[in-house]
Each structure stands twice: as structure tokens, then as C-alpha cells.
Amino acid sequence: MNPSIHTIFAGGLVCPLDKNNVDTDQIIPKQFLTSVSRDGFADALFFDWRYLSDGSPNPEFVLNAPQYQGASILLSRANFGCGSSREHAPWALQQYGFQVIIAESFADIFYNNSANNGMLLIALSKGNIDSLFNRCSEGPQQWQIDLKNQEIRFGNNAALGFDIDQDVKQRLLSGLDFIGSSEQLAPKISDFEQSRKNNLPWLG
């Protein structure tokens, strides 16, 4: 596994999805989970919202609006990614073109899955999220995401700082191999297994 890692989060066009509790069944419905591949999920993203039952694009859904074509930053509300553990959700978002998701909060498993695929998730206070939606209501936005300095830049020297777990930040910036870095502790894993066998032999 070598998830694509973005060393620079250059940012770009912002798509505002003004909803709370965007769940994984909405991000990618179950009928697309029968695949054995990691690829090919871009068209399945937000399927039930994005397409009408005859298969044509739903003109009411924000992702289909002409001014948001090519968006790479998704703005949403609280508890984004709640629901199942399907990693197909971040795969679909990423393959559609989103590199960054900004929301009030994220479900834990979705957050980890996104980080493991090199996608940046930024959590901000409700007040800050409200102000970002206000910006979007003024017209299409182009923002720059500076992960190193932890800033969303709006142009004209305006910026908004954000917090991020330093471990996640390092992994996103350096592109460290998720499994490879744990494998460096292989001798400790073997030691642990030996003591587990001695102390709790019924565990196998």
C-alpha cells in the first residue's frame, strides 16, 4: 500500500455541503462496496444525492452546480463521515478530486481512514465553520491550505489557523509508510508475543 501523499496542500475551489451528519451511506451507498478494487469510486460519490432515479444528474445537488466543478476542498458541518468503517468513503471523495475536507467535527473511523489515504481533514469551531459558509455564499471561493503552518489562506493576506494532531500532520507531510513505520518495531512485537504466551497462554 502506498496511498498518494500530498506534500503540499495547494488547495483550490471550495464546494460547500451545508449538512450535519453526512454519513458513509450517503458518501458511498452499499451497492458500490462489492468491488475488490481500491479504484473506480469517483462516480459513486454521493450517489443518491447526486443522481436522480433515472440516472441523470440532480440539478439541486451542490456538487452538480457549474460553479463547483473541479472543487478540491469540501466544506461541511458536524459529525462528517459518521456511520460505517468503509474506507470506500474517503476513496470516493479522493478519487472525485477532494484533497481537503473542512467541517465542525468528524467521526473517528472516517478521520483515521482519510488520514491513512493522505487526505487532510480540518476540524474548526461552529463559529468558524459558519463564517466559512458565509464566505461561500458570497461566491465561489479559492482557498490555499498551508499544512506546515496550519493555515487556511483566503487571499488578501486573510487567513484562519487550525489545529491538527501532530502525528497526522507529520505523516501527511512526510508520506511515511503506515505499515513500514510500525514494522520498525518488529523486535518489540516479537517480545510482546513471547510475554503474552507466557502470561496469558490461552490467548493463542
Partner: peptide, 16 residues
């Protein structure tokens, strides 16, 4: 707890 597929791969490889 539930994990994603990248983590499934991690556990298969390292049991951690």
C-alpha cells in the same frame, strides 16, 4: 472497535 481497510492491511501484516 471498527477499522478501515488500510488498518486491516496493517493488522494482517503486523498484528498491531
Amino acid at each position: 472497535f471498527g477499522i478501515g481497510t488500510s488498518e486491516v492491511e496493517h493488522v494482517l501484516a503486523t498484528q498491531t
